[in-house]
């Protein structure tokens, strides 16, 4: 299995922990990652500025993958949704497809609908499989309750095929259990982390993230995990700010990428997984895990 790693902006510009842990864990499970030479933003935050920019931007990304004959791994929920939506809409609307291709032609690219896009949760759960993961891990992590936060765009909208649904158990939860941890539900796990309010009002966004963290703490979770750079950016990076804004000093929970947990189970060093870059108290979790 070889994929083109389309990082997107957030992962590539600040969430280095995600990228490091992805690059460290996936090859151990037989997934080869190709680093692209040419890439651009997928356009999610720019949707408000132009309706058509995301189509062009995503078609460009898909065309680049197609020119290399590879499918894409998009580790960011937003990128994944936008790429899926673009594939879906372009296939439905031949006029849009030809309009976008007309632009791409000038860059020597063409998108025909061949290249597909996958989210790491699909790669891990559907392509690699729980069995392979359980057999590959070096040591089972202790049964610590961990809450998953799949992120809005992994489950919504159901209009397009999404990796997760809220009907059944989440793939992410099964993956958590596969490495020995205990998946712990919390009421607001299908809710939004608030990242997209950040440009409008950081305070409001951080308040939203604080709600989620408080709920997870209330059910006794020892950590929050996700596979979305936006969610972890909010739940991990903004904990100090949340303490200040809400005045609640209890907001403190290790928040980290699932791939980082997986890396620990695969016997990788925390440094390799970029865990020193997490702002939340991951060392608390590390201590429990190491015992």
């Amino acid at each position: 299995m070889k994929f083109l790693l389309y990082l997107g902006c957030t992962t590539a510009t600040k969430q280095y922990g995600y990228e490091l842990s992805l690059r460290a864990t996936l090859p151990l499970l037989g997934v080869e990652l190709e680093h692209p030479k040419d890439m651009n933003c997928c356009g999610v935050p720019m949707k408000g500025i132009s309706k058509f920019y995301p189509y062009y931007a995503c078609a460009r990304i898909m065309a680049l993958a197609e020119s290399q004959g590879l499918d894409i791994i998009a580790p960011c929920n937003g990128c994944h949704l936008n790429l899926t939506e673009t594939i879906y809409k372009l296939k439905l609307n031949p006029l849009l497809m030809s309009a976008v291709n007309e632009l791409l032609k000038e860059e020597g690219l063409k998108y025909t609908g061949k290249a597909m896009v996958y989210h790491p949760v699909e790669i891990l759960h559907d392509k690699i499989g729980i069995e392979k993961i359980t057999s590959s891990i070096k040591r089972k992590l202790p049964e610590i309750p961990v809450s998953s936060h799949p992120g809005c765009h992994l489950i919504r909208p159901t209009e397009f095929p999404r990796p997760e649904t809220r009907d059944g158990p989440l793939k992410l939860d099964r993956l958590i259990e596969a490495i020995g941890l205990k998946a712990r539900d919390y009421p607001e796990k299908y809710e939004c982390c608030g990242a997209a309010i950040l440009p409008y009002s950081p305070e409001a966004a951080i308040k939203t993230a604080a709600f989620r963290i408080k709920r997870a703490l209330a059910v006794g979770s020892k950590a929050i995990t996700s596979l979305c750079p936006y969610c972890i950016d909010m739940l991990d990076g903004k904990q100090d700010a949340a303490k200040t804004i809400t005045g609640d000093q209890n907001i403190s929970i290790p928040a980290l990428y699932y791939t980082q947990l997986l890396g620990l189970a695969l016997g990788l060093d925390e440094k390799e997984l970029g865990m020193s870059l997490n702002m939340s108290p991951v060392e608390v979790l590390l201590e429990e895990v190491k015992v």
Partner: peptide, 15 residues
């Protein structure tokens, strides 16, 4: 008005 820029793109309303 600026208020239209407050949406958090959680897509719950779409759903």
């Amino acid at each position: 008005s600026d208020v239209i820029w407050a949406c958090s793109v959680c897509l719950k309303c779409v759903e």
